[in-house]
Design a binder for these strands. Structure first.
Lengths: 140, 140
DNA sequence: CTGCTTGCAAACCCTTTGCAGTCCC
DNA sequence: GGGACTGCAAAGGGTTTGCAAGCAG
């Protein structure tokens, strides 16, 4: 991940390394605030501003992917570049599962034909409860 | 729309009437700010706070539907209750077209089976350019 | 009349910006 | 050593809240 930064002319600083590591380690959807908290634990000297600026760069390079929808907008997950994917988001624990299987090109073409829109992209997210949270709910 | 409010025990005040009318008249996606501007034109005495509080109620009663994604989160459109629909959003003029044709139940079932999630809902939005904005773009 | 609603103002986020000092390369 | 990067603090924008006054039912 850091290599990509370098390749695009960004410097790989201690702070950016810390932010990237925190993102990789965690599997959750991360808000800037959550990410800041995680980074701040090990590196109390890193400020929120750096989190925002780093996230901006990572999003620009598609190393991270911005989520919308649900109760909290502006969340980020690690994004596989060159691979469009959708998300399955747990309302209980915020676990995010990617799925790439579904192909929307047929639907997109038919929509474009009928609406005369030029379609550039889409956003698809499913909401629900992951297995663990389902158990918690039905359990004690 | 007002009747539904009443039915749920909310009072139908002059302010709420104004907000509802503004929503119905406009076909765009509305941010609280835009809606406030529209309402404020005819009713300079109505404050932003009322916009927020009214939107909250309307969203709760599913009379209005919250959109996410794109550059501006937190936008609202009139929502047909009892009818799940998706949106086709123009990046140029913010025109929103609904489409309800596509059926996701099959995809949802297969996703649920494979991920073991209990799927409660989804959000699907397409982005692109409407016919008018395509012409503007290719024109002078 | 009674209690829900409202508007104002202030509080409160979250995010961005300006600037002087710091550090990567 | 130079320019990109950082942290601080402050500004900025959007949203929420407390409170006294107002109005629907």
């Amino acid at each position: 991940m850091g290599a990509v930064l370098r390749r695009h002319g960004y410097k790989l600083t201690r702070q950016r390394r810390a932010v990237i590591e925190a993102i990789i380690v965690s599997q959750d959807r991360l808000t800037p605030a959550i990410l800041y908290a995680k980074v701040h634990q090990d590196h109390p000297d890193i400020g929120v501003v750096t989190i925002y600026r780093t996230l901006e760069i990572l999003a620009e390079l598609a190393l991270v992917c911005e989520l919308h929808g649900g109760t909290a907008c502006h969340r980020y997950v690690i994004g596989q570049p060159e691979q469009h994917h959708h998300h399955l988001i747990c309302s209980g624990c915020s676990l995010v599962t990617d799925f790439t299987r579904h192909d929307f090109s047929a639907l997109e073409r038919s929509l474009a034909r009928q609406s005369r829109f030029r379609i550039d992209g889409h956003l698809l997210e499913f909401f629900g409860l992951c297995p663990a949270c389902q158990e918690k709910q039905s359990g004690p």
